[in-house]
Each structure stands twice: as C-alpha cells, then as structure tokens.
C-alpha cells in the first residue's frame, strides 16, 4: 500500500569555491512514501536546505549536483530537462520556504498570483482558476477566503502569508512537498495552526512531505520518520520513536540530552562540546569525532551506514543495542 514517491541515492551537491570544494551534501540517501511525513533535522550548515534545493533542481552555481540519483515516481530527475523540471515544480512537487516572500510577489493581489500559478500548469478558465485558488486558501484555514483572495501580501500577518504560500504549494495537489523551516520564524500558536493544517492535508491528500527543521519537538509531534543530518550526511534515520527514544548516534543523543527538560532545573544542561566543523575544515574520518565522547582511533576512518533505509546510523560505536520489537 505504501507507494514509494521519492528515492534518493548517494546524492552529492558540491560548491566549487576559490577556497576549495564545499561538500554541502555528500552522499545522502532518502526514501519517502505517499502520505509520509519525514522530518529532516540538523544544525545550520549541515546541508538540509541544499538537499531540498537539489531535489527540485534549484541549486544555483557554483553549486552542482555532482553524483547520485533522484527518482521521483520512478522518473530520474537528474536526467530531466530544465523544461520538465519546471513543469514538475509547482505542479507535482512544491517547495515552501522559511520566508513566504520568496514565494509571494508584494505588488500583486494574492488571487492574481494564485490564478497565474494555476494556469501555468492546467488548462482552466480564469473563473475556474479563481475557484481553485479560493478553495486552497480555505483549506489552509484563511478565514473568509472569497474576500481575502483580493488582498495584497502586506495586508496579511507573517503567519497568514505563510499560509498563503502553503496554499500556493497545494494548488495542484502535489505529490511531494519540501518544506524548509516554514514555521521557524512564526509564533508558537501560529506555528501550531499551520502544523495542524499540514498534518490534516498530508493525511487527506496522501502527499509526501519532507519537513526540514532544527526543532526536534516539532518533528516529534508532526513526523513519522526522521533523518538527522550532520556535515552533509545523514548520520541517523528511523521512525520518530526509534530515533528519539533509542538514538544510536552520539550526535543525536547529544541533541536530545541538551534540551532543557522539566527536571533539569538547578543542574547544568548536558552540552555537546565544540562547534560544527566549518564546511572547508571537516576533520578526517567521522566528522563528529572532535565533539564525540565515544571516539576511538577507529573513528579516524569514515563510518559507513549500518542498517538500512528505514533504520540506520553512521557510527563505529553505536550507543544502544536496538530493542527488537
């Protein structure tokens, strides 16, 4: 029943810069099924956004997908023409950005923009397109969509603009949505409204959703599966329960432990020492080694992935023995 939507294998996206090659994404594997929400977490610079852009063919020079395959419903997107990718974007695959103004044009009424988007991908009349736009606005919880459709972006609050951007992403009922920290800049109660809509829509429409975030709490509540990125690679993956309850990678464990919990008051928080390595100064072997309390000489070579695409990790000294169900 779970139909595979997206299969990414050994994706590498590199930037040739005067100072050297930035390996922003360096061998990423991903699988996503219909109706699945995958949380992609990691600290800034770990390669989350570039992974998302790579899937859509939106990496700007000097960046380039240098290796790997991206299969979307069986179609090889790396081999697809620019025109084919344009046709897919906004139709079968949509992206939602952290800043909704990346999607919205400030001097156009949102209805105008939405009608344009509809008609770019479907042969429908203006009236039909307008009706579709209005329905999409209603779907993301914009009150009185038939009135608000004629408003300009500045007449909406930040949270409402993000909903409009989501409505635009939903116009063609895409199969896949890649959402890059779309609620990070929003307030908690507004974030919660948007998460609620997104959750409902994936359930009802059977879309696949990749939700990029650095907030483990959001991912825990929203997603079924999670992939943790560090220095351009996925270092741990599994169901939310597996990854958050029995993390195998010391970095995942460190992230979870460093969150202040109810009973931590009065004692120092467990912290991960040091900083993420700069993209051009990654250490040899396991990139987490300088910050890892479990490192041994074995970690001077690179750990490959243990497990499979549903549950796996990259570490020579995984923490727990997986509790088998």
């Amino acid at each position: 029943m779970s139909e595979t939507l997206l299969e990414v294998r050994n994706l590498k996206t590199w930037f040739e810069t005067p100072k050297g090659t930035v390996k922003a994404v360096d061998g990423v594997d991903l699988t996503l099924n219909r109706g699945e929400i995958l949380g992609l977490v990691g600290e800034s610079g770990s390669g989350k956004s570039i992974t998302g852009f790579s899937l859509l063919g939106l990496v700007d020079p000097p960046g380039k997908v240098v290796e790997g395959s991206i299969l979307f419903k069986g179609e090889d997107l790396r081999a697809a023409s620019v025109r084919r990718l344009q046709a897919l974007r906004g139709d079968r695959i949509a992206m939602i950005f952290q800043d909704p103004m990346m999607t919205l044009n400030p001097v156009l009424r949102i209805g105008t923009q939405m009608i344009e988007t509809v008609r770019a991908h479907a042969k429908v009349s203006k009236d039909e397109a307008r009706a579709m736009a209005r329905d999409a606005l209603g779907m993301v919880g914009i009150p009185r969509p038939e009135e608000r459709i004629d408003a300009y972006p500045h007449e909406f609050s930040g949270g409402m603009r993000q909903r409009v951007a989501i409505a635009i992403a939903l116009l063609h009922k895409p199969d896949l949505i890649i959402a890059d920290e779309p609620t990070t800049a929003l307030d908690v109660t507004i974030q919660s409204q948007i998460l609620s809509e997104v959750q409902k829509l994936t359930r009802e429409m059977g879309m696949g959703l990749i939700w990029i975030s650095h907030d483990l709490g959001v991912v825990a509540e929203l997603a079924q599966n999670v992939a943790v990125m560090y220095a351009g690679r996925i270092v741990e993956r599994g169901t939310v329960d597996q990854v958050l309850d029995t993390p195998m990678h010391p970095y995942t464990r460190g992230l979870i432990d460093s969150l202040p919990m109810e009973n931590d008051r009065g004692q120092p928080l467990k912290q991960i020492p040091g900083n993420a390595p700069p993209p051009l100064g990654r250490p040899k072997g396991c990139p987490f080694r300088p910050r890892c309390g479990f490192a041994t000489d074995a970690c001077l070579s690179e750990p490959s992935e243990t497990g499979d695409l549903s549950r796996g990790w990259r570490c020579f000294h995984p923490l727990a023995q997986e509790v088998s169900a």
Binding site: V188, T189, S196, Q199, V240, I256
Partner: peptide, 22 residues
C-alpha cells in the same frame, strides 16, 4: 501557549489550536 509548545516526548500530536491571528 503551554499546550502548543512542541515537545519531543509527544508523538503524532493532533494539533488543536487557538484560533485566529494575533
């Protein structure tokens, strides 16, 4: 506000939210 804070110990939360804009 307290109800809507995302928490890592809560899974598959059905968000049930305060309505309306600020």
């Amino acid at each position: 506000l307290l109800e809507e804070i995302p928490r890592i110990d809560r899974r598959g939360h059905r968000f049930n939210t305060v309505k309306g804009e600020i």
